[in-house]
């Protein structure tokens, strides 16, 4: 098997995640799909690292994880405060530019 298949898998996962972001209304699930996309990217980075024979790709993936962690913290906080004010976690409910 050619390791390039990891890239195809990453592309597939990324696409699934993106489609999920577009389709789902629940902010938490949307958020999960974003995480899925990030993970797909990480997989691609790791595969690139193997391809190029150095560790820079892994470093980038590592940073991605850190940023994702920060993003999750803030994003979930936003979801929680949104839920508090609207009693709903639907992204469509936040369609007006005010709370």
């Amino acid at each position: 098997m050619n390791p390039v298949n990891y890239l195809y898998l990453a592309a597939l996962l990324f696409t699934i995640g993106a489609t999920g972001v577009l389709i789902r209304r629940n902010a938490i699930v949307v958020f999960m799909c974003v995480e899925l996309m990030l993970n797909a990217c990480n997989l691609a980075l790791v595969a690139f690292s193997r391809m190029h024979g150095n560790l820079d790709g892994q470093i980038i993936a590592f940073f991605t994880m850190v940023v994702a962690a920060a993003e999750v913290v803030v994003g979930l906080a936003i979801i929680v405060s949104l839920f508090r004010s609207r009693h709903s976690a639907s992204v469509d409910d936040a369609s007006l530019m005010k709370l």
């Binding site: 972001v21 577009l22 209304r25 992204v91 469509d92 369609s95 530019m97």
Partner: peptide
């Protein structure tokens, strides 16, 4: 311009 974030995402 319906205000839905998902539409913009599309």
């Amino acid at each position: 311009q319906n205000g839905y974030a998902r539409s913009y995402a599309v």
